[in-house]
Design a protein around this nucleic acid. Structure first.
Lengths: 252, 252
DNA sequence: CGACATATTGACCTTAGTCAAAGAGGGTGG
DNA sequence: CCACCCTCTTTGACTAAGGTCAATATGTCG
């Protein structure tokens, strides 16, 4: 458990052929320092000019940006295998903060050492490039969610996506997973108010699509969830129509 | 003009010390192929499994994702010096489409050649890593805009940011710049309806903040624009208060 | 000039946010 | 074990930002 390689091969298949697990890249790195953080503890400080890159070993973390009035936008959730702060370490300045959502264990590497390693070890660049590229694609998905999907679609979409990532990391079972984040945090990721998110979740629960409760997500109707996740803002009022306060299943 | 280095040094200072111009990285690459595209012509096809990376030499382009019902989210605008499709080329699959917004000239390189070049030339990795990292930071900014800023703040923020990028590329003069994109396109980038964006722009114009017209952006009150851009969704109704239909300057 | 796309504006409606307040769980000191 | 305190979750009532529809300019191009 202290061994990086151990968690790097946490994936179900054992080998990380798809490269989905960023940790695989980092397993090659020297001079990693193992660190632990408690929930809500700051891992990366926004604006830090000498940041560290991290390889998350266990637990959940999240990156965020704070606005002048205290409003927060959560940019990404990090699960074991992710490498928070990678881009920032390469640029030499943290553009966003990162906090632990649960108790976490992470391996850290100072930015300058990362850059040095990249210079000296040509084999390291490829996996880091892939990690960054995947991050870029994930960010695109987020932009589509925030810009063009309804609150319901956005919510379902993100929860499905998290499920897929956890699945690949071997941390999901059947059609559900442990999701140790508060509605407030999720709302800040979805660009919604916590209150509205709560209503959205209630509706999804009452309609038998999914339950988000007590740290767990369960998809009661995965197929419908996937359909909902793809709908856009003013999509056919088919899947999630107008008025029914208490819903009716698929309906006529 | 056909020489890559020429446009790579398009920046005002001549040398690209900050590395803001992605083209600098590409200038090292062999086997570039110069291509031209007309407005609305597809440069990168979403889903293409064998994509090309591009170095934009002149003109504007934009990356986007299409939703089932035809809704579009513009993910980024590309100006000379940018490298659209870089992340996709590294992953071997285009996650988003890219089209020319104006007539453009771009140098293209097949993904496999890019990857080969990265393997053979260790000096190439660093600039590509920086380019990807900058892209990540830009995406974060976009997520904050879409998730947590009002329509007005978002609009002003993006126009200011575009101005800064153009400035660094030596394509902006004083407090304005040529901005050859339609309101529809801008709206799709901001996650707004074109109609609402039009109202926002009208208001900004009437309030003497900025004008977006006939392919040009002019900041009439740059200081106020910057202030507006930082406000969040339910920020103090100070800068952009309630009713005044025809506005009054800063006012009491 | 006609065909088209973009830009504007008005009238109206829906989604999502705000305010206020009441439950629910989980620690903790007594 | 219990009162107290916190934070997170829920719900109701109301407001407002932003979307939808429809129609009218404007502009460009062949």
């Amino acid at each position: 458990m202290t061994d990086i390689r151990a968690s790097a091969t946490r994936s179900p298949t054992g080998d990380d052929a798809t490269g989905d697990n960023d940790l695989a890249a980092f397993a090659l790195l020297p001079a990693f320092r193992r660190r632990q953080f408690q929930p809500d503890q700051e891992v990366i400080r926004e604006g830090d000019p000498a940041p560290h890159a991290y390889a998350l070993v266990s637990g959940w973390a999240f990156s965020y940006r704070l606005l002048a009035d205290g409003t927060r936008q959560v940019l990404a959730f990090h699960i074991p295998g992710d490498m928070p702060g990678l881009a920032d370490a390469l640029l030499g300045r943290s553009s966003a903060g990162c906090k632990a959502a649960t108790p976490i264990v992470a391996n850290s590497l100072p930015a300058y050492q990362l850059r040095a390693a990249l210079t000296h070890d040509p084999g390291l660049a490829a996996p880091v490039l892939r990690a960054l590229s995947r991050e870029a694609v994930a960010a695109q998905e987020r932009m589509v969610d925030l810009g063009r999907r309804s609150a319901v679609a956005r919510t379902v979409h993100m929860l499905l996506e998290l499920g897929e990532r956890l699945q690949r990391a071997g941390m999901a079972v059947g059609n559900g997973y442990a999701c140790p984040i508060s509605q407030i945090l999720l709302a800040d990721a979805l660009g919604l108010s916590a209150i509205h998110l709560n209503r959205v979740l209630r509706r999804l629960r009452e309609d038998g699509v999914l339950r988000f409760r007590a740290g767990h997500v369960v998809f009661d109707d995965p197929a419908r969830a996937r359909r909902l996740a793809l709908s856009s803002r003013q999509d056919t009022p088919e899947p999630y129509p107008g008025r029914p306060r208490h819903s009716t299943l698929p309906g006529p």
